[in-house]
């Protein structure tokens, strides 16, 4: 089997982050850590798509502003979202005067963008890249499910798409929070066709990526302070723990799921949050803050995505899923020299 994990010797680091979230998320457990809590989920726009685009744009601007690099010094933007033809990301890119690389990994977009940005920086092609993604409950619901005002009962397996966006500036130096490695995901499909049960569909993909990552880097799951999955929800989290345990790896001690912690489940969120914005908001606000504060030192972000469309599910196809992992660790020294950094490779 080939090697699917890339280890970054030059330690690209996450310099700053920017986040924004809607009213429901802000009331949740981690929502209070976002930079801009919204009271109005349309963000002053007349359509939800425009609101999503504006949120993404805000997250990018905020991240750049906090990094102190200035907009002129950003080399590239890597971004994507859930809408058809990734319109939010492409339209948000109009506001910025640097190249744009559109990526689509459904809800795994955040990790995919981080991994790609880290690769480009580690190789020395670029110095400063902004990676961002977001989603909006109302626009996603409109595209994938029923009209908002339609009175339907939500099934108990369902999750709630996060209204929010998060972005981060990744650079070759300037922070001690480094991206140390990335494992690109394989598309995994265990035959789940129920579009309301994304957790069950995505859990095998998360399991596959986590196991490969640990195996290829020769690590125990205990090496990480946290193994953070993207949006499996309560049900999917349980499944991923079972699946990894079955393969002899116990992640139950340090596994958390962004979808599970983002809401106080009081209304109809059921299994928790989902969507590209879920891992983007939780990582870039709460987790990054904890990393900065030194409460966390090593985390593995495994964002999971369900690669379906309304057409494929209408034709009865099962849901292919993917999970990308990036490990984010604190470096020993503030500005690591490439030669020294190489030694620390295998923890």
């Amino acid at each position: 089997m080939g090697l699917h994990t890339v280890t970054f010797k030059n330690k690209p680091c996450i310099v700053s982050t920017g986040t924004i979230a809607g009213p429901k998320e802000v009331q949740g457990i981690v929502g209070k850590y976002v930079d801009c809590p919204l009271q109005d989920d349309t963000f002053g726009e007349d359509t939800y798509e425009k609101a999503e685009c504006k949120m993404l744009s805000y997250a990018i601007s905020k991240a750049i502003e906090k990094s102190g690099f200035g907009r002129d010094n950003i080399d590239l933007m890597v971004s994507g979202d859930l809408l058809n033809q990734i319109i939010s990301a492409s339209f948000a890119a109009r506001d910025f005067d640097f190249p744009f690389l559109g990526v689509y990994g459904a809800c795994s977009t955040m990790a995919e963008a981080f991994a790609l940005a880290a690769c480009l920086i580690d190789a020395g092609y670029m110095k400063r890249i902004v990676a961002a993604t977001g989603s909006h409950f109302s626009s996603a619901e409109r595209q994938y499910r029923f009209p908002l005002e339609q009175g339907t009962t939500r099934p108990p397996q369902s999750q709630w798409t996060v209204t929010g966006a998060g972005g981060a500036v990744i650079a070759d130096s300037g922070s001690d929070i480094c991206i140390t490695s990335a494992t690109f995901g394989k598309v995994v499909d265990y035959g789940v066709t129920d579009v309301n049960n994304m957790g069950a569909a995505m859990a095998p993909a998360a399991c596959s990526t986590i196991l490969r990552h640990l195996q290829e880097r020769k690590l125990d799951p205990g090496y990480y302070d946290l193994i953070v999955t993207g949006d499996l929800g309560a049900l999917g989290s349980r499944i991923v723990k079972d699946l990894t345990w079955e393969k002899g790896v116990d992640i139950s001690e340090n596994h958390i799921d962004c979808g599970e912690i983002i809401y106080k489940v009081i209304e109809d969120e059921f299994q928790g949050g989902s969507g590209a914005g879920c891992s983007a908001v939780v990582f870039n606000s709460y987790l990054y803050r904890e990393l900065k504060a030194g409460k966390l030192n090593k985390i593995l972000l495994v964002a999971t995505g369900a690669l379906l469309s309304t057409v494929s599910s209408g034709q009865g196809e099962s849901i292919p899923c993917i999970a990308h992992a990036v490990s984010i660790e604190r470096a020993k020294e503030k500005a690591p020299m490439p030669a020294k950094a190489g030694k620390k490779k295998e923890g």
Binding site: P156, Y190, G191, V192, N197, A200, D242, F270
Partner: peptide
Amino acid sequence: YNRNYLQYVNSFDP
């Protein structure tokens, strides 16, 4: 394998 997985998932679906 898929059938087993679906059975397993359904076993604790809410």
